[in-house]
């Protein structure tokens, strides 16, 4: 069972690398934020697989924290950089 998990984690790692490419090349600021969200989901999946294959339950808590923090990063970015706090545009 370890080989498929190792292959899956390798594949997810390459997905993360491609996400970095999008950050570098992304034309608009929102694309860079998308890559941050990609890290949220792909990173969580990678951590869950590693937690299972290496029998370290601590990695599951790391995955939980990562998925939460990726939302906070997006919200912080929107309120600070994009210049319009989510609440202000309710008309």
């Amino acid at each position: 069972m370890t080989l498929p998990m190792a292959l899956a984690s390798f594949w997810l790692l390459t997905m993360l690398g491609l996400g970095l490419l999008r950050i570098w090349r992304g034309p608009s600021v929102a694309d860079r934020m998308l890559a941050a969200q990609l890290f949220g989901t792909t990173g969580v999946a990678l951590l869950l697989i590693l937690a299972q294959s290496q029998a370290q339950s601590a990695l599951r808590d790391v995955a939980l924290a990562l998925s939460l923090l990726s939302v906070l990063a997006t919200v912080a970015f929107l309120t600070r950089v994009a210049g319009n706090p989510p609440g202000s545009t309710d008309d």
Partner: peptide, 19 residues
């Protein structure tokens, strides 16, 4: 963890789209 990831990416997708 999966449910949190679902809710997290749904909200952040909406926020980015709205912004």
């Amino acid at each position: 963890v999966w449910v949190v990831a679902l809710v997290a990416s749904a909200t952040s997708a909406h926020l980015v789209a709205r912004a």
